[in-house]
Amino acid sequence: MWLPILFLVIGLSLGILTDMRIPDAYSDYLSIAVLAAFDTLFGGIRAHLEKAFDETVFLTGFFFNISLAALLAFIGVQLGVDLYLAAVFAFGFRLFQNLAIIRRKLIDQKLLTKIRKK
């Protein structure tokens, strides 16, 4: 479980410390890709807490989610429709759902630990 968190910290540190600017034309693509990456990251943490984590599923899901999100944004730009909003809604919903489940799992584990100590 520590590996995804380590790379999240490294990625955030590199992003904050560098002075790289993303052109406005790519902002939709990047925002969708980041949202898809966070969805996959929290899904991996959830799977780890449920003892169902699989590296192959995690890695293929990571690249598939980012590719699908970028493709939706690209098609939307070509059609002149904000199609990327569908991906924002879907990934945002899953992200908050995963966070809620992670929170519940951590609370349950903490409660079980307290009960076992008594």
Rank of each mutant, 00 (worst) to 15 (best):
M1E: 08
W2R: 14
L3V: 15
I5F: 01
L6R: 09
L8T: 14
I10C: 07
G11W: 10
L12Q: 05
S13W: 13
S13I: 11
L14D: 01
L14Y: 13
L14C: 10
G15I: 01
G15P: 00
G15N: 06
I16A: 12
I16E: 13
L17A: 05
L17D: 07
D19C: 08
D19L: 13
M20W: 15
R21Q: 13
P23F: 05
P23A: 07
A25T: 14
Y26A: 14
S27T: 10
Y29L: 14
Y29D: 09
Y29G: 06
I32L: 08
V34I: 14
V34W: 09
L35Y: 01
A36F: 02
A36Y: 02
A37G: 12
F38Y: 12
F38I: 10
T40H: 10
L41K: 05
G43F: 02
G43H: 03
G44M: 03
A47M: 08
L49V: 02
E50R: 11
E50F: 05
A52V: 02
D54V: 15
E55K: 12
E55T: 09
T56C: 09
V57P: 02
F58I: 02
F58Y: 06
F58C: 01
F58A: 05
T60L: 12
T60E: 11
G61R: 04
F62N: 03
F63W: 05
F63A: 11
F64M: 08
I66F: 01
L68F: 14
L68P: 07
L68V: 14
L68T: 12
A70K: 13
A70L: 15
L71A: 08
A73C: 05
A73G: 01
Q78M: 06
Q78R: 06
Q78Y: 00
L83F: 13
L83A: 11
L85K: 06
A86E: 00
A86D: 00
V88H: 11
V88I: 12
V88E: 12
V88C: 07
A90G: 03
A90R: 07
F91W: 09
G92C: 00
G92I: 01
G92Q: 01
F93V: 06
L95Q: 01
F96K: 04
N98I: 01
I101P: 00
I102M: 04
R104K: 12
R104G: 00
R104F: 04
K105A: 13
L106F: 01
L106P: 11
I107Y: 02
K110Q: 13
K110A: 12
K110F: 11
L111M: 05
L112Q: 03
T113E: 09
T113L: 08
T113I: 01
R116I: 15
K118I: 04
K118L: 07
K118T: 03
